[in-house]
Write a protein that binds this DNA or RNA. Structure first.
Lengths: 217, 217
DNA sequence: GAACAAAAACCAACCGGTTGGTACTTTCTT
DNA sequence: AAGAAAGTACCAACCGGTTGGTTTTTGTTC
């Protein structure tokens, strides 16, 4: 490729806009995030914005997809995935989510939950996008849950799907409390309770949540 | 009193604005809810708005208080409060919350959770108000939880306060999922899981195979 | 020099907030 | 008890700044 480095960034405006949208929307919400804000954060002009996205709503949908694929990459590649016991993988998922709570608030918060709360009535397209990606992630967790149920021979009046969605609800709620209290401590406590619930369901006893693991092979 | 009934409504604009704010903000979010929207919904002019509230932010704080006292009235007077066993009261609380999920989406949703998600960074006053009222409600639930722990002689590594906040997190998360999926069914499932967790903690029932630790007094 | 990407200037609609005035209630005075 | 005075509740029109979005112009790549 004869990629000249004369201009420091040519052809990467779209990606920068997506990243900027992620940050701005997560800290200010969708409606309060102006297109100018996002352009400023991305270091890009408005013309570039409307060259890549046909509307603010369009960007929101694209940002949802961007966020989802980013999350997907993280969790698919996480060390806990290698654990042999599916129950350990379910608990490992919660442990990893707890570990992620370390950073700044707008960085561990969920874009999908933030957007859908504002847009569910007024922007059906955004609602659908958020629903799809949340459900996809829940389905990802559901796999391990279903395997865990099979491994423990659990017959219950609840489904693997409903439990997977429940984990997502706890996460979303934990984020809201973290925002209200301006810190991740509450959220961590909530994940401990979720961990305890899962442990009770699958192991019949609540063991202390392990420290976020180093990756075994 | 010579109260003339000539004018159908005099002196109730403030209350109508608060109710309107509740409805509009819950369906559109704080930032997207314009002052004009709220005035239209209340059937009141903008002049009246700024006579009673010095800014939109000021209204938000008042609406939070309004919502909180409304909720407080409901839960304080609920029949489940009369149950003698504190554990039943804790479970009764969850059952009542599930029953409330029947109505339209913007009617069972939590104003505090909705607002704090958008405003936590940009409107500290709103954040504080939401935090306070959420925490107060959690403290209300905490009373029964603490009594339930005492009644069952539970010694644990979790506190009554953290469990109370956890119930609120589950509720907030359930609302988000309900918005994403455009219906209360998911939220009901989440409350079932919460109910099961509390039942496991306090009654130890539905416990799978391995007999676990009995809590000696 | 096509074709595409990005910048800059621009616009109509809209938003939160203000103004100055009117209707209604209460309180004070007599 | 009448009525003036004061205070409160409300209204309609308006304002300056901002918003999402467009159009025109400049630059880059093949």
């Amino acid at each position: 490729m004869t990629t000249s480095t004369k201009t420091r960034s040519y052809g990467e405006a779209r990606g920068r806009l997506l990243d900027a949208a992620l940050h701005v929307i997560r800290s200010r919400g969708y409606a309060a995030a102006t297109v100018d804000d996002i352009c400023r954060e991305a270091g890009v002009t408005k013309g570039a914005f409307f060259h890549h996205f046909k509307s603010k709503e369009d960007l929101a949908v694209a940002a949802a997809a961007h966020f989802a694929s980013f999350a997907d990459a993280i969790f698919s590649a996480a060390p806990y995935r290698a654990l042999p016991d599916p129950v350990d993988r379910v608990l490992g998922y919660v442990a990893l989510r707890k570990a992620i709570l370390m950073g700044e608030l707008p960085e561990f918060t969920c874009l999908l939950g933030t957007m859908v709360q504002e847009a569910y009535e007024t922007h059906p397209v955004i609602r659908e996008a958020c629903d799809r990606y949340i459900s996809e992630h829940a389905a990802f967790v559901e796999q391990d849950i279903a395997a865990a149920m099979a491994a423990r021979g659990i017959e219950s009046d609840w489904s693997a799907g409903s439990l997977a969605l429940y984990t997502q609800a706890v996460l979303q709620g934990a984020f809201i409390l973290a925002k209200a209290k301006h810190g991740p401590a509450v959220a961590a406590d909530c994940l401990d309770h979720l961990h305890r619930y899962l442990d009770l369901l699958f192991n019949g006893q609540a063991r202390p949540a392990p420290a976020p693991l180093e990756g075994p092979p």
